[in-house]
């Protein structure tokens, strides 16, 4: 238990990241305990449609007659899971490719760097849209896949740059002379020294995954029958929620996506400080 607290300490000490941690914790708890918190089932379509906010329905109802607040609470599950899964997957791919390409010189590095550069250059959202549009099945797995394919390169580039500077350190040379294999050197010796960069690229990847997933779902490239914040925006836009005066239906999911993204960016301030002590406030 104490070691977990030790890891969390720098995040807690930085005021900005403390706010981020608290927001994230609230969202995760809401997602876990959704059935207890939500006033109704999100699938309950028995309410009158397009009600404005009232005491019985704090955020009103949808066109299909669902309670917006309950949808929002249950939707946090899907949005958090997709965001984090895609963030983790993109970071892992970026980590493996970045570290190997940074550590090895010569042909392997050239080929991997070339792939990194190609994927950095191709604009993310259009590529995501195109891949998702060609795919025959639409669903969360597709969204995670598309975001991973388009999002790993940023992390890979940053990590690769860092490894090229660590490669020539004495402890790496010592490990090499001690006869350790290259994967052991890369992942056991070098990686622990750049864990803050890994964390930063994970947070960055998760933020863009959350925004990317929301964008794809908003365009209708997700599975519109799954309940998530992005599909809520899709349905709200397509049933003219604003024109009917049911602004809460459209406002709330987007606002929560923004808050979740902000929370991760705030946590990243603490990571930035660890990686670059110059950013730390003097005194």
């Amino acid at each position: 238990m104490t070691s977990t607290f030790a890891i969390l300490k720098p995040f807690w000490r930085n005021k900005l990241s403390r706010v981020g941690l608290i927001i994230l914790a609230i969202m995760v708890l809401t997602a876990i305990f959704a059935p207890m918190i939500a006033p109704y089932s999100p699938n309950n379509t028995t309410f009158p449609s397009m009600l404005g906010p009232s005491y019985a329905h704090w955020l009103g109802t949808t066109q299909a007659g669902q309670d917006v607040l309950s949808e929002l609470i249950y939707g946090s599950r899907q949005s958090l899971v997709v965001g984090f899964a895609a963030g983790i997957a993109a970071t892992l791919v970026g980590l493996v490719i970045g570290l190997i390409s940074g550590y090895l010189t010569g042909l392997v590095d050239d080929i991997l760097s070339y792939f990194i550069n190609v994927f950095l250059v191709i604009p993310g959202l259009p590529l995501m849209i195109i891949v998702a549009a060609y795919a025959p099945v639409h669903g969360s797995l597709l969204i995670i896949f598309v975001i991973t394919v388009t999002g790993w390169a940023w992390g890979a580039r940053v990590l690769r740059a860092q490894v090229t500077t660590l490669r020539s350190r004495d402890y790496v040379a010592a490990a090499r002379f001690a006869g350790e294999g290259i994967f052991r050197i890369i992942f056991r010796e070098i990686m622990p020294n750049m864990i803050s960069l890994v964390a930063a690229s994970f947070l960055g990847a998760a933020v863009s995954a959350i925004l990317g997933a929301a964008g794809l779902e908003f365009l209708g490239l997700g599975d519109p029958s799954i309940n998530s914040w992005g599909t809520m925006l899709y349905w709200a836009e397509n049933s003219g929620a604003l024109l009917e005066g049911q602004w809460a239906w459209l406002f709330a999911p987007g606002f929560l996506i923004a808050v979740l993204g902000t929370a991760l960016v705030l946590i990243n301030f603490a990571v930035d400080e660890m990686a670059n002590p110059r950013l730390r406030r003097r005194g």
Partner: peptide, 13 residues
């Protein structure tokens, strides 16, 4: 960290 299409919809509204 806004989804900017969302911000745009609010602005339109």
């Amino acid at each position: 960290s806004f989804p900017y299409f969302w911000f745009a919809m609010i602005a339109v509204f």
